[in-house]
């Protein structure tokens, strides 16, 4: 049993080493010439544009439900007017970035993991390598950069639609103009709220792309490994999102307050 546990730890440590080597390889290829612009744009479209509906709908419903849940509590304190501020702070600082990232981990990291995993199984990655082409640059660099660029944009969309959902919920039971609502929301947010929230979405995007690519690119050559790559990409990326969230919040609180 002890031997088994020890061997499990060895495997995990070896995997961490492989991840560091993969990161080094990514950085080396990032600064190498011949960037694959057309593939990068295609990936931005696949990753960003095709996630708009899912992220937007989820964020809208989250905002709607949050406002519905918060309203009775705030009314109890006689603080109904604080509803836009509460929604703005919670959505922009925490719920928007984290929910968007978790949705993207589920949709994008698993998609990348499965795609690269199946390319590995069907020897497409090997074919690129033995032909003298650079699969790291074509498949990995483009995908990681695309997620790093698209997740912040998706978060921005999620924040706006989440606030719109909150606006709808407020107007079901009360009445407030859209202009006044958004004025109150924006007034309640400072630069120190927006900057850490934005920075962490960049890290979220990077980790989603990186874990998806790592799991897919390093999957074994069996059919079931495609499923394993997709599944573990979601699990590990989601875990990293919460870890990064905690670190960024702690660091920004230390620096700002």
């Amino acid at each position: 049993m002890n031997d088994e546990a020890l061997s499990g730890w060895r495997i995990r440590l070896a995997e961490k080493g492989e991840q560091v080597a993969f990161l080094k390889d990514f950085l080396k290829n990032l600064f190498r010439g011949g960037f694959e612009w057309s593939e990068f744009i295609r990936q931005c479209y696949e990753i960003g544009y095709k996630s708009f509906t899912l992220v937007g709908t989820t964020a809208f419903i989250m905002g709607l439900v949050m406002a519905m849940q918060l309203r009775p509590t705030l009314i109890g304190f006689g603080a109904e007017s604080m509803l836009p501020k509460s929604l703005a702070v919670s959505i922009v600082k925490e719920i928007g970035p984290v929910i968007t990232a978790i949705i993207c981990a589920g949709k994008i990291a698993s998609g990348i993991g499965a795609e690269l995993g199946s390319m590995k199984v069907t020897e497409q990655i090997d074919a690129m390598e033995v032909s003298g082409a650079n699969p790291m640059q074509f498949l990995v660099v483009t995908r990681i950069l695309a997620t790093t660029a698209m997740v912040p944009l998706l978060t921005l969309l999620g924040d706006v639609l989440g606030l719109l959902g909150g606006f709808l919920a407020i107007n079901i039971n009360g009445s407030v103009s859209l202009l006044l609502y958004f004025n109150k929301c924006i007034a309640s947010l400072g630069f120190s709220d927006l900057l850490p929230a934005f920075i962490k979405t960049i890290f979220f995007g990077f980790v989603i792309g990186f874990i998806g690519c790592y799991k897919g690119y390093n999957s074994n050559k069996g059919t079931e490994s495609v499923g394993i790559a997709a599944n573990s990409a979601v699990v590990v990326a989601s875990l990293w999102i919460f870890v990064i969230d905690a670190i960024v919040v702690q660091v920004s609180n230390t620096l700002i307050y």
């Binding site: 795609e115 390319m119 069907t122 020897e123 497409q124 090997d126 074919a127 690129m128 390598e129 033995v130 032909s131 003298g132």
Partner: peptide, 20 residues
């Protein structure tokens, strides 16, 4: 190695076509 590989063609069992 990359340069050498450009002089070698490798046909995989499955064909290994890029399916996208």
């Amino acid at each position: 190695l990359k340069k050498l590989r450009t002089r070698i063609g490798f046909l995989f069992q499955s064909g290994a076509l890029y399916d996208s």
